[in-house]
Design a protein around this nucleic acid. Sequence first.
RNA 1: GGAGGCGUGGCAGAGCGGCCGAAUGCAUCCGCCUUGAAAGCGGAAGACGGGAGACCGUCCGGGGGUUCAAAUCCCUCCGCCUCCGCCA
Length: 420
Amino acid sequence: MIDLRILRDDPEAVRASQRARGEDEGLVDQLLSADERRRGSVSRADALRAEQKQFGRQVGKAKGEERDALLAKGKELAAEVKAAEAEQAEAEQAVATLHRAIPNLVNTAVPAGGEQDYAVLKHVGEPRKFDFEPADHLDLMTKLGAVDMERGAKVSGSRFYFLTGVGAQLQLALLNLAVQQAVANGFQVMITPALVRPEIMGGTGFLGAHASEVYKLADDDLYLVGTSEVPLAGFHADEILDLSTGPRRYAGWSSCFRREAGSYGKDTRGIIRVHQFDKVEMFSYCKPAEADAEHERLLGWEEQMLAKIDVPYRVIDTAAGDLGTSASRKFDCEAWFPSQNAYRELTSTSNCTTFQARRLGVRYRDEDGKPQTAATLNGTLATTRWIVAIMENHQQPDGSVVVPEALRPGLGGIEVLEPK
RNA sequence: GGAGGCGUGGCAGAGCGGCCGAAUGCAUCCGCCUUGAAAGCGGAAGACGGGAGACCGUCCGGGGGUUCAAAUCCCUCCGCCUCCGCCA
């Protein structure tokens, strides 16, 4: 949720953010007036409660007839309090509904527009010039015995797969390398729950516009996470953290589950877009004033990891309309996919400022010892999809794939994956 | 799955219808004492909302109810613990 103080002090900033996202600007004024009404109802109820409290003490001391008379009056008072509290509850509900409907404030540096309006911040490496027709990752992996899509479909349906043999080994090597890097950079490694409660899923902002993306276990009132960002954000819910020595950083390893509703026909080949994959995710809790700098650091660590698989990529600053509900700014690193002649997302790092933390009750103490809402950020360190980039960029004419040097130790020293 | 017990401030732990936002201990912070420290003594100190402030309201796992009045009684949900059964 956005900071209501900002809304009251500078509603135009919130309107501008809504415009940038292509969201309803009218919600801003609705929320403002609902908040006004809420404040009125609270002070009326407070005054009545104070009166009732005073009154209750008189009754406690009174005796006999005097007491009976007071009891009669007490009933009237109780009815008034009840009515005022009902009004307050209703006003608060109205504010909460509108408040939740407004996504995070967009950072003013973010380019306007939708999915196509990203700004390219830089390119790293040159797409390789092939002197043969490059195969796509599915052909390569099938020949290597690294994946089994047919049986994935047989067992679980479309967009499911088995990583087999060297495919499974490669993923473990990759994710382990990510964990090692994270540890070296001072992150605490976490293996997180993949099922979370509704409050946690909602608190991270995934039950808003993108709720249809999330798997739900209705019988148990639990959600399958699409990223370990969710349990990591919930980890410190309703806590006051000590952030005086700098950000708290976690690296979460989990399977991730996505319904991919509305992406029919998109990326149907191979393991680019699947219902279940594995990921190592970085997550930071910090003071809001440090969030922009932390965002740059997370991007830096993503690039450090990308360098280890040695593929060409570019970094983009996602446009306002393409930001998630919780993000104020998002940088994606997109690797070159030769088979598609296109850059595709491998990492994504979002600065959620105080949006998630406010919903989840994550705070820290400022210099004066007062609790303040923290900021949260997240960023990808490695995923199953990275295998696609490795396969396609390091393939050779005979269908073999050169293993990037950094991954060789994790694969028992293998330098080249050979077709079977 | 069955039976029972328990959820109170940073922690431990009283309170079980009416000056209880809550005793006490530990931990914390500030004084005094000390060359310095410990001990000892004195004091401060929860969170949230409102108000310029005095101060007011809310919060005793969550929600609902009974009552003039609920940390205290009732219902319900969640969590933790113990025993039995079942499965890994």
